[in-house]
Structures are given as C-alpha cells and as structure tokens.
Design a protein around this nucleic acid. Structure first.
Lengths: 120, 120
DNA sequence: CCTTACGCTTTCTATTGGAAAGCTAGTTTT
DNA sequence: AAAACTAGCTTTCCAATAGAAAGCGTAAGG
C-alpha cells in the first residue's frame, strides 16, 4: 500500500471520499446494513430520494464494491440490494456519523440560532 | 430529546447530515482537529478547494457550532479557524471514515475495474 | 512600482440535483 | 374491460450549485 492521502488532489482516495462522504450514500449503506432490500422498499425508507438519484447512487456503490445487486425473475421483477462484507465495514463507520447527527442536533440548532441572531 | 430520525425527510438531522456528510467538510474538520489554522494555510492543505467553496464551508461549519473563527488585527489581517469541543467529537467519527477510504482504496479500485470490465 | 501576501467576495459558466413523466409488463380494482 | 397500481428503472427538463477566475483593499518586500 503506497502513501494514499485524501488531502492530495489527484489521489484516488479523494474520489472515493466524494462517493462515501455523501448524504444519500450514508443513508443507503446504513439501511442496507440491516439486511437486503428492494429498490422501491428502499426508496420509501429513505424519504425524499428520487428514483433517479437512488438509481445512480446504487450503481456507484455497486461499482465501488460496497453493495451487490441481485435480480429475481419474478413478476414483476424483483431486484434486491445487499451490503457486501467490504461495505459493511464502511457502514459501521458511517453509522457513527449519522448517529452523532441525531444525538447532537439540538446543540447544533442552538448554535445556528445564536449565529443567526448575531448576524441579524 | 425527541425522536429525531435521519430517514425522515423533514427532520432537522437530515439537513445536518447534508452539511457533515460532505467531502470538503470532512477534510476541513479533520485538518482543524490537528490545531488552529489560517484561511490560506488551510486552502493549501486541502488541495483543490477554491476560496469560494472553502469560505462557504467554513461559514456553514461555524454556524453549526463545529468550528470557531478568530480575527487578529494584524497587517494583513489574520483569521484563525479552530475546532470547537462539539466539532472535535464529530471530527473523531469522521476521521474513521476518511481513514477507511485510505485503507480500502485498493479493494475499491479493484472492484471498479471488475465492474467496468463486466459492463464493457 | 510591480509583485506578493492575506482573506475573502463577485461573476460566470459547466455540471449536477431533483421533480416529473415515461416505459414494459403483469395484477388487482371498479 | 378499462383504469389504476405494482416493480424498477430511464429520460427529460429546469433550477440550483460547484468550481474556475478575477477583483479588492491594504501593506510589506524586491
């Protein structure tokens, strides 16, 4: 392993960070770490995501080897997304960030109010 | 603390996640966790960031109470950014994600090559 | 004087994000 | 038997954003 550095502009880790340090990717990976899930099921759980964005995000995560896609010839067709072992190790780290958001939102909201009051 | 949930479209945690699950925010917070740093110094360390984007990102992080800004009346003026105690707790979680990227980039690159080969 | 430095802001354009509609195919509702 | 709904997307379109580039004000250094 050579000296990869996310602070270097042309390091491949920078592109990877751009994929994973992302709101939708975080939500998708965390949800998939609970178990396999179908496209529209996932779409309903991740409120507010459009089909286009979900589709693109899933493709990207699959390309990075973080999730896998399985097609079942049912009627209508069933497509199931699962997390890979590699993806699971990342979901673990990412979940601490999303949980941090839920745990510290009130402190952040207070800070925002103070900031806005100062600037007004 | 009420039931905050990042998967709910209108939950404030969703907006917060949008701020912190971000490439630039991650890099800035992690760098600031090493100690206070000036604007242009930070700009040089975080390769590839433009002044506009850096400026916007710093404002957002300050508003969220994750970093603080100190102005010194030198000539030319010195502006120093530091991480807050709240921000430090987040930087800790985020750093595990960026380090994950550096540690697993090779597995990801391999996966990408395989994916592209299958699709070609 | 012309360049450099600091810490931005402003302007501009190319890319992207997301809403909405379309699509194929089958199954339930009215 | 026609309408509407299901699944899993893709395509189209417009608005918002990302980022490159230039500007700005002040002052020190060559």
């Amino acid at each position: 392993m050579r000296n990869y550095d996310v602070y270097s502009e042309n390091c491949p880790t920078r592109l990877l960070l751009d994929h994973i340090a992302d709101k939708w990717a975080s939500l998708i990976l965390w949800k998939l770490s609970e178990g396999p899930i179908r496209f529209n099921e996932l779409r309903r759980k991740v409120e507010g995501i459009s089909t286009k964005v979900l589709s693109q995000a899933l493709k990207g995560l699959e390309r990075d080897g973080l999730i896998s896609r399985a097609v079942f010839a049912t009627v209508p067709v069933t497509v199931e997304y699962s997390i890979t072992p590699l993806g699971a190790t990342l979901a673990d780290k990412i979940s601490t960030v999303t949980r941090w958001a839920e745990q510290n939102i009130e402190a952040v909201l207070t800070s925002q109010q103070e900031y806005d009051a100062r600037g007004a």
